[in-house]
Amino acid sequence: MMYYYHYPYPPYPQPPAYPGYYLYPPVTRQYPQVDVNIFTKSIKSYRLLMDQGSILLDRLGDEDFDVKLMSFAQQGNKTEIDKLIKTIGLKVPVETKYTPTGITFELTAHPDPSSPVSCCTLSVHMKWGN
């Protein structure tokens, strides 16, 4: 035989009897004026990175260059890879990382020559093996 107990209150909290009982007035926040100067400089710097990336890709389209690059990578000779990349004559610093399956070039730009902090990075990932 089952017994049902009747409690004088519901088991879960009920919503307030009238709307707005638990509502507080909205908090209005004051935000500073938007300044797009840094963003504009970053866009100009990124355009430079895109141009430099295009120069890099054009050079990587040369089969003799690719054979040298992949041979140095296979030997684990990062110094020679860095020298080879410098022969391209890019105007931005390039960090090269490679594995047996691919290579990554990270081109970085500074929006302001007096600022040591990089604003933008263009990463080019390419597969060259299985």
Rank of each mutant, 00 (worst) to 15 (best):
F72R: 02
D62A: 11
Q52I: 08
P100F: 07
Y12V: 12
V27F: 13
D58K: 06
T96V: 15
P26N: 12
I88Q: 07
Y9S: 04
L69H: 02
C119R: 08
S118Q: 11
R29Q: 11
K86M: 13
D82K: 14
M50Y: 13
M1I: 08
F105C: 01
V34A: 05
P19Q: 13
T121C: 00
K41N: 09
P26D: 11
L56K: 02
H110L: 13
D82V: 15
L122D: 00
E106N: 03
D64K: 08
L122C: 03
C120G: 03
Y21H: 13
E106H: 04
I38M: 01
Q14T: 15
P11V: 08
M70C: 09
D64N: 11
E106M: 05
A73G: 02
Y9K: 01
P19I: 14
S42N: 05
M50V: 14
G20Y: 06
L84W: 00
V124Y: 12
W128V: 10
P8C: 06
L57S: 03
M70S: 13
F72M: 01
F65P: 02
M1L: 10
S54Q: 07
Q14G: 10
P11C: 03
A109S: 09
F65N: 03
Y3R: 01
S45L: 06
T104R: 01
Q52T: 11
V94K: 06
Y7C: 08
Q14A: 13
Y22P: 07
K78M: 11
T28W: 11
K91C: 06
L49D: 04
L84T: 04
T101P: 06
V92W: 13
Y98C: 00
P100V: 07
I81L: 03
N130Y: 10
S123M: 00
C120M: 05
Y3S: 01
P11Q: 05
G61S: 10
Y31K: 03
P10Q: 14
E63R: 10
N37W: 12
M126V: 12
N37E: 10
Y5R: 03
G53N: 04
G76K: 07
P19W: 11
Y12S: 11
V36A: 07
D51I: 09
L122M: 04
R29F: 15
A109P: 05
V67G: 07
K68S: 03
L57F: 02
P8N: 08
P113K: 13
P13Q: 07
F39L: 04
V27Y: 14
T108H: 01
I81T: 05
Q33A: 10
Y4G: 00
V27T: 14
L49H: 01
Q75L: 04
E80S: 03
M1T: 11
L107R: 00
L23I: 10
K86Q: 15
P11H: 05
Y4A: 04
P13H: 03
P16D: 15
E95W: 12
V124F: 06
L57P: 00
I85G: 08
H6D: 02
L84N: 00
S71C: 08
P32Y: 09
G20C: 01
K127P: 08
M70G: 06
S45I: 09
V34M: 00
E106P: 00
G102S: 09
T101D: 13
V124T: 08
A73T: 01
K78L: 14
P116K: 06
I43L: 07
F72E: 03
P116Q: 04
I55A: 14
L84P: 02
V36P: 00
S45E: 09
H110R: 15
D112Y: 15
P11F: 06
